[in-house]
Nucleic acid binder design. Structure first.
Lengths: 342, 342
DNA sequence: TTAAGGCTCCGAAACGTTTCGGATTACACA
DNA sequence: TGTGTAATCCGAAACGTTTCGGAGCCTTAA
């Protein structure tokens, strides 16, 4: 039904080859012929079949991103922002973006195989890296172009291109800031152990304490799943067990906001009786009351950088540096409260 | 370099046809043969080339979405939410989502032509409809499957599948709510005239006034571009010109939040000296202080419905109803303030 | 007069699948 | 012995492009 090159060729009275070359701008076709062919093509409303073209060119001009189940909450900002950064850069390079949402981790790996192995995309972006991430193993093994938003865990090789914010430094900054304010009993709400950045963030907490000669107490660390509710539960738990605690740092903003609710539910006031800090600086952090002290991770920018690197790799221009570690910035807001009187 | 069906066939000692049929689960191949072929395919790490498959099947199992420049602000929630709804449903039906970000409206139309005309996707979703939208004209003319998130303007035909929230009813509800609270001088920050829903929202404002026998004053209407700053400017303008104004309704939440800033800058207090209402109920509306009275438009749900309809159409099952108009829900929050004393 | 070269054009192959329409073999049955 | 049938396999065409390698013709120069 759709009009093909063959139709245009027939209507114009030339071969398919010449028609293709005329439309393609080659100079071995007579100018009048070209004009005639272009006219006919336009009249017929010819649109080249991208699939056929890509198959022949062995190139899709497309990058892929697989979105995990976990990012499906309507209020998860991380992937939305990352995607905007990616798609903006992609569009500048005339690339499209293929999104494959998947509901289970197994589906996720299969999606990468289908998409990258099936040549639907020229390269993929891997986000939310896990410990021993099978996706990275697969992509490396098959030599498919990819860039990681995130990093591998400290005990793993990181011989692949990635862009990440420095988790260790980020958490260290918030904790140091609270120590600076005079806090000595600071709780930490950690992320799930399977996430690759978890050890870095925990190390940031530990190092900040060590720098100030404060003891690291394992019972000051609670665990959440990055969702708001888990932060609330973790904070409630910490408060109940350690009434002397005056500050809590969470591994991300969502959990910090959950913690806010827990603090208020315990009859304490955030920024007065209890200092609170997060990580990410999602848009909400600025708008909630009291607004949240956090560490700004430039997610949109990371998306841009990741896409930039991937397209370079696809184009056969390996980027100068394979691993980019961005320094996150401490943003002090009302949830810090005032320095404690001594 | 990648392993193809031909490689598997050669390694297994069968023809390409048999190999294809073995892998495809057809019953005219001997069970032992099938097992042998499957084993070989696995050993070689065979991944079918999706492009070739799609070309042959004349079907991409993919739906397309073009993201306009306007949605590129990191804090634009609308498209992020819509996309999550779409991609969730798409994944349930084993469809992928092709995103094409475009920077100018002309590029946008070209992107639809490339994507739909070029058979990269089986159907597309059109969002943020304009007056006399050329994308809809193009898609209709070429009989490409598509569903619109939004609606055509009141003076245009709407003989195509769409899902939209009832803009007229939504704005009417907020305005009526303020009238109910005793306000008589209510301003309106309208959306740009080229957007298809603008006349509906304006009509909602007018009808609510008429229902209460309040006069419609054209100078009570300001215009914005849906961005936060424009709402701030529009509100500042209204406040300066009409000191008697006690309430402002904006065409979307972003502009209402901008208006909040303007009201505060004018030394007035939102929810006390000035009632404020928006439209959308973006996540921020709930978290800002004071939290914003608005009309909830189920964007995520609209994305789901739109995708559901599109996939039905692609599968040749025309949906029972072509136009779905969702009733938005008034959400009363602190920015409404208290009913005025009479 | 002929060879060389430039200008236009085109047939066929290739990209990697799926599918249509047989072909071959073995076996049972008349 | 010949025929029908089921089981198993395969060649070739098709999807719509691009590209390789030439072919034909006309002009120019030796």
């Amino acid at each position: 039904m759709p009009v093909t090159l063959k139709d245009v060729a027939a209507a114009a009275g030339y071969s398919v080859t010449t028609t293709s070359r005329a439309l393609g701008g080659y100079d071995d076709v007579n100018e009048q012929t070209r004009e005639r062919i272009i006219t006919v093509a336009r009249e017929l409303g010819y649109q080249p079949n991208m699939l056929a073209r890509q198959l022949q060119a062995q190139r899709a001009e497309t990058i892929g991103l697989v979105i995990p189940q976990a990012a499906h909450q309507p209020d998860d900002d991380f992937f939305s922002l990352l995607m905007k950064g990616i798609s903006y850069v992609a569009s500048q390079h005339q690339f499209d973006l293929l999104i494959s949402s998947q509901l289970t981790p197994q589906d996720e790996l299969r999606a990468y195989q289908r998409i990258a192995g099936g040549r639907r995309v020229d390269g993929v972006i891997v986000a939310r890296t896990m410990h021993d991430d099978p996706r990275i193993a697969y992509l490396q093994r098959n030599n498919y172009p990819f860039v990681v938003s995130g990093r591998s865990a400290p005990d793993e090789p990181d011989d692949f291109p990635f862009v990440d914010a420095d988790s260790e430094s980020g958490i260290r900054q918030v904790v140091a800031h609270f120590i600076d304010y005079g806090h000595e009993h600071i709780g930490f709400i950690s992320s799930p152990p399977e996430l690759a950045y978890t050890p870095y963030r925990l190390a940031g907490y530990q190092h900040a304490l060590a720098d100030a000669d404060l003891p690291y107490r394992e019972d000051y660390v609670a665990h959440g799943d990055m969702q708001q509710e888990s932060g609330q539960k973790a904070a409630a738990d910490l408060l109940a067990r350690h009434p002397q605690m005056t500050a809590i740092v969470a591994s991300n903003d969502a959990m910090a906001i959950g913690a806010m609710a827990a603090v208020q539910a315990a009859g304490k006031q955030v920024g007065v009786d209890m200092a609170l800090g997060g990580f990410d600086d999602i848009p909400l952090a600025r708008h909630i009351t009291p607004d949240l002290t956090t560490v700004r991770q430039p997610i949109y920018r990371i998306g841009e950088l990741v896409a930039e690197m991937l397209i370079q790799i696809i184009n056969g221009e390996p980027p100068e540096q394979t691993g980019i570690l961005l320094e996150p910035k401490l943003i002090i807001r009302a949830s810090s409260g005032q320095p404690l009187a001594i």
